[in-house]
Amino acid sequence: MRKYALLCLLVPVFSQAQESHRLHLTLFGGVTNYQGELQGRTFTFNQSNLGIGAGLKYDLTPHFAIRTGIQYGTIGASDRDNNDAKLRPRNLSFESRILEGNLLLEYTLFNMEEKRISPYVFGGIAVYHFNPYAFDTLGNKVFLKPLSTEGQGLTAYPDRKQYKLTQFAIPFGGGIKFRISDNVILGYEIGLRKTFTDYLDDVSTRYVDNGELLRERGLKAVEMSYRGGELKDGNPTYPAADELRGNSKTKDWYYFQGLTLTIGIGGTGNGGGGWGGGRGKTGCPRNVY
């Protein structure tokens, strides 16, 4: 009996090495959006775009895990859909691809070896690349940063520096996940990204003198920095220098939300962490005395 009990104690140790799905493949599919000068809503599906992602997750304990991955999506907005009616006459718009790499720590409230459903939260650090662009009246794609639409890099505005297209962000969020098999967990999550730039949409502060902008960046820069004249009955007069164009006091945000799929890899056992708690896969009694 003692030999049988000892065997039952040792089998889970060896089987965990073989079956522990501590390593997982993660897949994401959903939508991407942003909050900034052209999209004032804190959180909305309005003007959202497709977002996808993939990565790896490693379970440290039944509750804590490390995640790393790549996510890709498009953000964009137009003043025509701006919830602030006072901003619609400027008629600005933008789009930008977002490519992000992240490293996250995830906390799951319940042990997924014992529960089928659990809420979870996560946070960490990310590096992302963006490059805002818009389409001119002929439908041509025009990247906005080289135009210095708010005087970035112009000799007449030495205090306005060019923004970097690759930057750090702080990702955080949460969701809920549901075990659909021993090896697969389905979830729904919302992940916010706090950025340190106000130029995801190329709009941040005040208009510059259109003569200076024309001289150093050309006519296209003037055309793309104020587009009120393109509207029916719109005002074609370029705003005076130093008139407000954006709100530099707040930084832009972007976020992903959608479905996640977590698939255990590297073994044939359970898919929620491989801790063996509560599943009894060895067939041994839980209490041997």
Results as ranks from 00 to 15, higher is better:
residue 98 I to Q: 00
residue 125 I to M: 05
residue 83 N to G: 14
residue 214 L to V: 11
residue 282 T to E: 13
residue 4 Y to Q: 15
residue 161 K to S: 09
residue 126 A to P: 01
residue 204 S to Y: 12
residue 170 I to N: 01
residue 96 S to L: 04
residue 41 R to K: 05
residue 287 N to K: 08
residue 134 A to K: 01
residue 38 L to G: 01
residue 199 Y to I: 12
residue 80 R to H: 09
residue 256 F to N: 02
residue 116 R to E: 05
residue 184 V to F: 06
residue 167 Q to I: 12
residue 261 L to E: 00
residue 121 V to W: 14
residue 84 D to T: 13
residue 27 L to P: 01
residue 240 A to I: 13
residue 215 R to T: 07
residue 54 A to S: 15
residue 32 T to S: 06
residue 220 K to L: 14
residue 237 T to N: 11
residue 238 Y to D: 00
residue 166 T to C: 03
residue 234 G to Q: 11
residue 36 G to N: 02
residue 48 S to Q: 03
residue 289 Y to C: 09
residue 105 L to S: 11
residue 32 T to P: 02
residue 216 E to K: 13
residue 115 K to E: 10
residue 69 G to K: 01
residue 254 Y to T: 04
residue 38 L to H: 06
residue 145 K to Q: 09
residue 82 N to M: 01
residue 31 V to Q: 07
residue 124 G to N: 09
residue 152 Q to D: 10
residue 172 F to V: 01
residue 115 K to Q: 15
residue 200 L to F: 08
residue 191 G to E: 08
residue 10 L to G: 05
residue 251 K to M: 13
residue 135 F to R: 03
residue 71 Q to V: 08
residue 7 L to V: 13
residue 79 D to T: 06
residue 92 L to E: 11
residue 166 T to V: 15
residue 89 P to F: 04
residue 181 S to H: 10
residue 44 T to H: 12
residue 164 K to Y: 05
residue 173 G to V: 10
residue 55 G to S: 03
residue 198 D to T: 08
residue 148 S to V: 08
residue 136 D to H: 07
residue 265 I to C: 01
residue 281 K to G: 12
residue 183 N to P: 01
residue 43 F to Q: 08
residue 52 I to E: 00
residue 177 K to F: 02
residue 184 V to Q: 00
residue 57 K to W: 04
residue 280 G to D: 13
residue 186 L to I: 05
residue 251 K to S: 13
residue 134 A to M: 03
residue 95 E to H: 13
residue 30 G to N: 02
residue 64 F to V: 05
residue 216 E to D: 11
residue 231 L to H: 15
residue 272 G to W: 04
residue 79 D to C: 13
residue 134 A to T: 08
residue 189 E to W: 00
residue 204 S to A: 14
residue 226 Y to W: 02
residue 124 G to R: 02
residue 239 P to A: 07
residue 49 N to R: 08
residue 134 A to L: 01
residue 225 S to P: 05
residue 32 T to C: 12
residue 138 L to C: 12
residue 286 R to P: 15
residue 202 D to L: 03
residue 268 T to M: 15
residue 222 V to Q: 00
residue 109 L to C: 06
residue 152 Q to G: 14
residue 174 G to V: 15
residue 22 R to A: 13
residue 106 E to M: 10
residue 195 T to N: 07
residue 231 L to W: 05
residue 86 K to V: 14
residue 139 G to P: 03
residue 233 D to W: 14
residue 17 A to V: 10
residue 102 N to V: 05
residue 165 L to S: 12
residue 240 A to V: 06
residue 87 L to Q: 10
residue 98 I to N: 00
residue 20 S to T: 06
residue 94 F to T: 01
residue 243 E to W: 09
residue 249 K to Y: 10
residue 55 G to T: 00
residue 173 G to N: 10
residue 123 G to P: 09
residue 20 S to N: 04
residue 55 G to W: 00
residue 70 I to C: 11
residue 184 V to Y: 00
residue 285 P to G: 04
residue 77 A to C: 10
residue 182 D to L: 03
residue 183 N to A: 05
residue 110 F to N: 06
residue 179 R to M: 14
residue 232 K to I: 06
residue 210 N to T: 14
residue 113 E to T: 06
residue 197 T to C: 11
residue 105 L to T: 08
residue 199 Y to A: 06
residue 14 F to N: 07
residue 73 G to N: 12
residue 122 F to W: 15
residue 63 H to L: 14
residue 38 L to I: 04
residue 104 L to S: 01
residue 47 Q to S: 11
residue 200 L to W: 09
residue 67 R to D: 07
residue 255 Y to E: 04
residue 191 G to H: 03
residue 274 G to P: 00
residue 217 R to A: 09
